[in-house]
Design a protein around this nucleic acid. Structure first.
Lengths: 325, 325
DNA sequence: GTGAAAGCGCTAACAG
DNA sequence: CTGTTAGCGCTTTCAC
């Protein structure tokens, strides 16, 4: 900038004014400065700018896995909003590891991101308190923070979504409905179990429930065990997108009814089409990002807890009748 | 840092030493400093550090769309490598728009990223020249840069992959093989067309080729037009993952043979399973990122052009015989 | 309209 | 082992 200034025969500050589009520069001077900038191939050093201004125009996003379609859809929507606000997105995957989540968040904070959107992997977020007190807005998406932290959240209506799935299957004559879902330590998994259990009422049978990370072998074993019962399941409710796919593989053509939580590409092309309770990851991302920018603009109202509706999409697999054994 | 220093009763520089794990600090002093850091909730301001040191420990990644499974797989692998090197990833989607690609790259450069990985959308990358001369390493992945830029590239072997697909179909008795692919301005699409054409030789018929963005309507129209020919196609080669899915929808159960470029989740669960020419996006991402870090470590050899092999995975759709009309 | 000076928080270079 | 000083490139403040 100094070089540009002397090349254009003006003071440092004038170059700064031109670069930032500030008013109060004679058009001719501005033109001379621009010419010098172009000639020297100058581009503003953002680090210095950030250091001086205190704002980085950067948002941090921590998700579970960028390669998971749900989270990448969410991420894409966040990116869109962030770019529209003239900011950049720093992102990282926690891989469902609390330690990694914390590391990422702390690294982002050390880089002074202006705000954070977090899909938490851990249970304890007290480490965020000082950052929050320092005024960095944080929005939790998909899952809430651990106890004792009062921040904005954007969640899906998991409980009622699971209820819809179960009632749909009940309506098609099923009374033995298995639930296969992820580790109940994961908020969404626990919520969906809760919705499942509530909707089943007296029909609930814990032998038809299995919750652990979705490996094909595990799911296959669990299903085999359930199908060997005297009163085996005639339908399955799968707790998330990855589970749905894994269950499909494990079922290997067995004609059980199936409803999955989360929509996925090609669900309609399978035979039968897969009935799902669909969330809208882009919507969640957009809502979370917009809420964050509202905070960044100075909205200091009480923390908001947005719950996005989900909807059941019948495609065939969930409408299979309950066959006699 | 100043506050920490006075709280611990030491000089600024000593705090700096402790924070950076530099040697030459008495363990007891270091402990006192650490206590003060903890007590005050201090965390280093990275912007100031970057300003002073000149390196940001940040890598920029420009891809087409974070929500596309191919690119998100690539992105995830890049992220992994970047984190392993103690850096952070700034990423953005070009959405296949050259202007957006350029904007992202320039913004990243203004933020002084240490290196860039780019899946280009545009044809002209002369705007990168000054940055390259300034010493910022850049690796192009999936697609090469426009003419006149001598940088590292990591590409898939598109031509021979397309050839494999076509020969596979020829081997199953097809001689009328349609090619549906994306806009030929996109490098990979053009390369695959070239491989298709070369493998078909005299059987090539331009009426069986359609290249444009993959909308369901367009694909449906094109297929209908081809199927109405006197000598209609009995097989389809789809130019990329999105195309494969779109073609499957457009075919709506018609028993044409199909081979798609790019593997996708569930390809094995469809009926019949979808035969594909599979690339490995994670591999591409990892190779690109590792090459970038090699450059960052000072490797100044001539630019490298890595071509990753692809492999055909038969699953059923590509082994359907050529039925008489 | 334009400019000079101060300082953001840190690290490099050099003393002690 | 510890401290002092200078300055990274910019914006802020205030003066002209």
């Amino acid at each position: 900038m100094k070089d540009v200034a002397s090349a254009a025969g003006v003071a440092l500050k004038t170059v700064s004014r031109v670069v930032n589009g500030e008013p109060g520069v004679h058009p001719e001077t501005a033109e001379r400065v621009r010419a010098a900038i172009h000639r020297l191939g100058y581009s503003r050093n953002e680090s210095a700018r950030v250091l001086r201004r205190g704002r980085t125009a950067t948002i941090g996003l921590v998700i579970e896995d960028v390669a998971d379609p749900f989270y990448s859809g969410l991420g894409r929507a966040v990116e869109e909003v962030v770019i529209d606000h003239g900011c950049l997105l720093l992102s990282g995957s926690s891989g469902e590891q609390p330690g990694r989540e914390r590391e990422l968040v702390e690294t982002f904070c050390a880089r002074r991101v202006d705000g954070l959107i977090v899909v938490p992997a851990g249970e304890d977020h007290t480490y965020l308190r000082s950052e929050l007190e320092a005024g960095t807005p944080v929005v939790f998406a998909d899952r809430p923070p651990g106890a004792g932290l009062d921040v904005d959240t954007v969640l899906a209506d998991n409980v009622s979504g699971a209820g819809q799935a179960v009632r749909h299957l009940l309506g098609h004559g099923h009374s033995r409905i298995a639930f296969l879902g992820d580790n109940p330590a994961i908020f969404t998994a626990a919520q969906r179990l809760q919705g499942y259990r509530a909707a089943l009422g007296g029909l609930y049978d814990e032998r038809l429930v299995s919750m652990r990370p979705p490996s094909l072998e595990a799911v296959r074993d669990d299903l085999a065990r359930m199908l060997a019962l005297d009163d085996p399941p005639t339908a399955v409710f799968a707790g998330n997108g990855r589970y749905t796919v894994t269950v499909l593989r494990a079922l290997a053509g067995r004609p059980l009814a199936l409803v999955g939580f989360d929509d996925f590409e090609l669900a309609d092309l399978l035979q039968p089409g897969v009935t799902v309770v669909a969330q809208d990851p882009s919507w969640m991302g957009r809502v979370a990002a917009e809420l964050l920018f509202r905070r960044l603009r100075g909205d200091v109202g009480p923390s908001e807890h947005i719950e996005l509706p989900v909807r059941l999409i019948p495609r065939g697999s969930g409408e299979r009748p309950a066959l006699p054994r």
